[in-house]
Every structure is written in C-alpha cells, then in structure tokens.
C-alpha cells in the first residue's frame, strides 16, 4: 500500500462515507434551516431598528446604539454559551438550535442596523427636502425616496456580513445542534475515522462557495454609480 492509498483510506474512506452520508445530508438541512431563520429575522430586526433610529428620538437612539455596540463587541460564541448555559438559571431553557438562532440573529441585527443606518444617512439632505417640498410625508419620503437609494448602497456590505455571520451556524455544534459540523464530529468519533469530517467540510463548501462567488459579482454589479 502506497502512502497515498493509506491517506485516501483514512481521509476518504468510501465505506465510512457511504454510511454517514445521510447524517451529513441531515446536517446540511439543519444548517440551511438555521441560516434562513437567522438571515430573515436578523435583517428584518436590523432594518426595523434603523427605521426607528431615523425618527430621531434621542433616548431611543441611545438605546439602539448601545444594543448594536453590545452585539458587535461580543463574540457570537460567548452569546450562544450565555444563552444556552445561562438562561436556564433564569427559568428559560432554549434548545441549542434556538440559542444559536437567537444569538446569530442578534449579531446580524446589530451589523445590519449599522449598515442600513449608514445607507439612510448617506442619502443627501436635498432628497428629503425635495420630497417634502412636494408634500410627501416623512414616512412616504423614507419609503419611496430614501430607502430605495439607501438599500442599493447597502447590498454589497450586507451580503458580505450576512455570509460571515451565517457561517457561524457551525458554532451551534458547541451547544449540540445537529448541523453539519455537529453531525460530522459525532460521526467521526463513532467511526474513529476522519472521513465524515472531510464530508462535512465539503458540505460547507457546497453551501457557501457559490454564495461567496455570487457576492463578488454583487459587489461589482451594485457598485454605486450616479
């Protein structure tokens, strides 16, 4: 047996891989579910916070800035651990799935709020004035004139940030979520063979590589031109 054969036998063992493929596929489904939930709730919450901030109510804005800063400073894994191991002491026992979802959604919310807010403030004052001078209300101006311009500007940074945070679903493995890494790790310890881990790694690439390449395209496509 050559060295290469031994390597392939260990890391790409066909028998082990066939056995644990369903587990890994199941893990992919969980990862996708988790990712979709995080993206939807995180972006939505971030947009809502940015819109509230545009109302310009001082104490409210301070609160929003504090929340955003908090979830930008804390490592996502610390938030997950805090919610999963800490909340039971307060009477709530969220599952690992829910803990991971909430934590990463909060992190995405914080980053999204910053990006949406920067987009809104980047729309020149003249746009507000022109719209208001024709009788559009504050809300109409925000929705019809300012947001469409702001969102275009936010697409590229938002895409990159969303990918980076969504990759964090792998952290769920620390709190026993059966996503890809969790499935791969337990399969590895059951089979005493690293092949499931290689499959897991491949699964991440299958999921995220197209998104990263698409993000590159988006970055050039939506570069702001006036």
């Amino acid at each position: 047996m050559t060295g290469w054969d031994r390597f392939a036998e260990t890391f790409f063992n066909a028998k082990v891989m066939a056995k644990y493929l369903p587990d890994i596929l199941y893990g992919m489904v969980v990862t996708i579910e988790l990712a979709v939930l995080i993206i939807l709730s995180g972006l939505f919450a971030g947009l809502v916070l940015a819109l509230i901030r545009s109302l310009g109510v001082r104490p409210l804005n301070w609160l929003i800035i504090f929340i955003v800063d908090l979830f930008r400073s804390l490592p996502p894994l610390v938030i997950i651990v805090l919610i999963y191991f800490g909340l039971p002491a307060a009477g709530a026992s969220p599952s690992g799935f829910v803990s991971t979802w909430i934590s990463l959604a909060l992190v995405l919310m914080a980053f999204a709020e910053e990006i949406f807010w920067a987009g809104i403030t980047s729309v020149p004052r003249g746009q507000w004035e022109a719209a208001r001078s024709t009788g559009l209300s504050f809300v109409q101006t925000l929705l019809e004139v300012v947001l469409p311009q702001a969102l275009r500007l936010t697409i590229a940074p938002l895409t990159n940030r969303t990918i980076a945070i969504t990759k964090g679903t792998a952290l769920g493995t620390v709190v026993a979520v059966t996503e890809i890494l969790g499935q791969a790790s337990s399969a590895m310890s059951n089979s005493y063979n690293p092949s499931p881990l290689m499959m897991g790694a491949t699964a991440y690439l299958v999921l995220f590589l197209p998104v990263v390449v698409a993000a590159r395209w988006i970055e050039t496509r939506f570069a702001w031109k006036r």
């Binding site: 003249g126 746009q127 004035e129 022109a130 001078s133 024709t134 469409p148 311009q149």
Partner: peptide
Amino acid sequence: IGMVFQSFNLYPH
C-alpha cells in the same frame, strides 16, 4: 407651493 432647488435633487433611482 412648488419648489425648485439649486442642486435639482431629482430622485436618482
């Protein structure tokens, strides 16, 4: 009351 601005302020989108 119509208003016309120095910098046009047309909506670019």
